[in-house]
Amino acid sequence: MGPARSNSSEQTGSLQSRSYRITVDDGRESFFALSIEDVTCDDAWVMSDTVVALENMR
């Protein structure tokens, strides 16, 4: 893991989000995850398994 980088002065509009339903234990358990990614940088992403939708983060 590298150091955190800030680009708050640069707004690229290149974020995308994806939702996933992840199944484990041969289908016995599943959970939802949300990923937010900067499409211009493979190293800039965050994934959370604590919310189902962005509206629930407020």
Score class of each variant (00 low, 15 high):
Val24Ile: 08
Arg58Gly: 13
Ser9Lys: 14
Ser8Ile: 13
Cys41Phe: 01
Val46Ala: 13
Ala4Tyr: 07
Gln16Ser: 13
Gly27Glu: 04
Ser14Phe: 02
Thr50Cys: 11
Ser35Phe: 00
Ser19Gln: 12
Gln16Val: 14
Met57Val: 11
Glu55Asn: 10
Ala44Glu: 03
Val24His: 08
Glu55Thr: 07
Ser30Gly: 02
Arg21Phe: 02
Ser35Tyr: 00
Ser14Glu: 12
Ala44Asn: 08
Thr50His: 12
Trp45Glu: 10
Ile22Glu: 06
Gly13Asn: 01
Ser17Tyr: 15
Pro3Gln: 13
Val46Gln: 03
Tyr20Gly: 03
Ala33Gln: 05
Glu10Met: 04
Pro3Asp: 14
Glu55Ile: 05
Thr50Met: 10
Val24Met: 06
Asp49Ser: 14
Ser19Pro: 00
Thr40Gly: 10
Val46Trp: 03
Ser14Pro: 03
Gln16Cys: 13
Gly2Arg: 10
Leu54Asp: 13
Leu15Phe: 13
Asp25Ala: 14
Ser48Arg: 06
Arg18Gln: 12
Asp38Arg: 07
Asn56His: 13
Ser19Trp: 03
Arg21Leu: 02
Ser8Tyr: 10
Asp43Met: 11
Ala44Pro: 06
Asp49Trp: 00
Asn56Ile: 04
Arg18Asn: 09
Ala53Glu: 13
Asp38Pro: 01
Thr40Cys: 08
Thr23Tyr: 04
Ala33Cys: 02
Leu15Thr: 05
Met57Gln: 08
Arg5Met: 11
Arg18Ser: 08
Glu10Asn: 14
Glu55Leu: 04
Met1Asp: 03
Asp25Cys: 09
Asp43Ala: 15
Asp38His: 00
Glu37Val: 14
Leu54Gly: 15
Met47Gly: 04
